[in-house]
Design a protein around this nucleic acid. Sequence first.
DNA 1: CGGATATGAGTCTTATATGGATCATATAGC
DNA 2: GCTATATGATCCATATAAGACTCATATCCG
Lengths: 112, 112
Amino acid sequence: MPKSITRTYSRYSRDASALFAGLIRTARIERKLTVQEVADRAGISRGLLQRIEKGDLKCEIGAVFEVATILGIKLFGADESTLIKHLRRTEDKLMLLPKSVRKKTRAVRDDF
Amino acid sequence: MPKSITRTYSRYSRDASALFAGLIRTARIERKLTVQEVADRAGISRGLLQRIEKGDLKCEIGAVFEVATILGIKLFGADESTLIKHLRRTEDKLMLLPKSVRKKTRAVRDDF
DNA sequence: CGGATATGAGTCTTATATGGATCATATAGC
DNA sequence: GCTATATGATCCATATAAGACTCATATCCG
């Protein structure tokens, strides 16, 4: 980020993130796994996992997903095969949609 | 990351991310919104939104969630109030769990 | 078809997230 | 209650994600 950025997040995003964090922490403890253990398995640092469990919105989504996966948390409430099915359907749908969005030609004849 | 990192992601994480990306792109086009428009509303750059729509696992989860929120995509299949309910339940559950995980004292009496 | 514009892909720069280490505190389990 | 250890919180260094530009191409819409 060249220009300094101060992101603002909607309530919804923050709550979703907090829930995600809670699900992760709960799953980890229920499985009796140490922060360090899970971090190692996910290939991330202990510090990052701590931030993830606090719902920090600035973590890489990949790290968060990976941790969730390791803990057996279902993303989109779907298992692998279901996930793929949804993925296929979404891709099919996308192929039927226009590839670019055109804004209606401004000014309804404001010419001559 | 001091030491160079090359993350590896599980199949599951990658598919979940791809699905998320597809849902976002689909929602954006269906709503006839330009990449630039959505990026502006989310307070992110056009380039970042493009990466998000490609399912790049290295994007900030906050940026992705924010875009999804703007496009009306339900995270965890729940609306705001439902999200909060889940959140509360998760927090309650967490309070009942131990706060730290102890590894069983190594070596089952290998002493004397 | 043609013109306008949205998108995709690259480059460069810089703010910053992450890893690693350390220290203090909490807490589990005996 | 004790003790070992898991967790939480900081700090520093650095790899890198994200912003701003630019150019080329795709594609929609009149």
